[in-house]
Amino acid sequence: MITIITEATDNSTNGVIDWLKFFKKDFIRINYEDYISKIKIELDNQDSNILLNDIDVSKSNAVWYRRGTINFQVPTKKVEDKYKINEKISSHLNKELSKIRDYIHKNFDYNNKSIGNYEVAINTNKLYILDQAKKNKLKIPPTLITDNRDDLEIFYKKHGALITKAISEAPLLSIENHVAYFYTSEVADISNFPKMFFPSLFQKKIEKAYEVRVFFIKNKYYSMAIFSQNDSATSADFRNYNTQKPNRTVPYKLPSVVKKRLKNLMKDLKINTGSIDLLVDKNNDFFFLEVNPVGQYGMVSYPCNYNLDKIIAKELTKIK
């Protein structure tokens, strides 16, 4: 049996499940949105069992941690709460559940049977990853975190045009019928900045020839080049699509030395699947930007005809 931890609306999961059905493999899908209604974990000197809704997930042959997590309903009671007793108990109950959750995710990682990893996904740190990339001989764009205009001006004088992006995972804001994203954007007119501001990340803007998005699973790497330089709407962040004239997105072959360094980095970071963003500048130098262990890969799979859903399904059926 294959266990999939995901979210209800994740289309990639549907695509992989279609292939698992085609290969006639048993699987269970656990969505973040669906609360686990029955749980039993039993540890003794011979064995450990984890039953979620009466299914023993600890006996899975393989686990795909796609995104989300296992979710339990926390009981709450609306009563007069002068001493914040309820609040404290509720917080304690949440901690109890989170330990159960962590244990289940850790158990999935036994015997290397998991593709994707919850712990790694929730603890991703862009700054730490940049440090590790550098250690693995990958070039990174000069990066600054600051809360004041003076530092920013010095950085600007040294590096020229800058971009800014979220340090954590940027949220998605839904406002009525509109969705707002926190895209990577270019920094304009620093002299208009207030003297002090919220600590923010700035990076030297690399004059790119093209971007590269890499999906990897275990040791297999699938790359796509994105040509967005002709288009001001997408020149800072290609997700800011131009639907009239979509960017050119084509299969790409990473130079073997870059691929080797990326593999070493992912080994150090203990990430066995995810999506990597790179930039290639006009001198053919590669810059590592970030890795997202739970990123979307459909936009790489479809235009490059890589059939990544099938490849993930096959990897899952291979784990014994």
Partner: peptide, 11 residues
């Protein structure tokens, strides 16, 4: 050589 052709497979 970094830009291979599109796979023509249909799966």
């Amino acid at each position: 050589k970094k830009f291979p052709p599109l796979s023509k497979s249909w799966q």
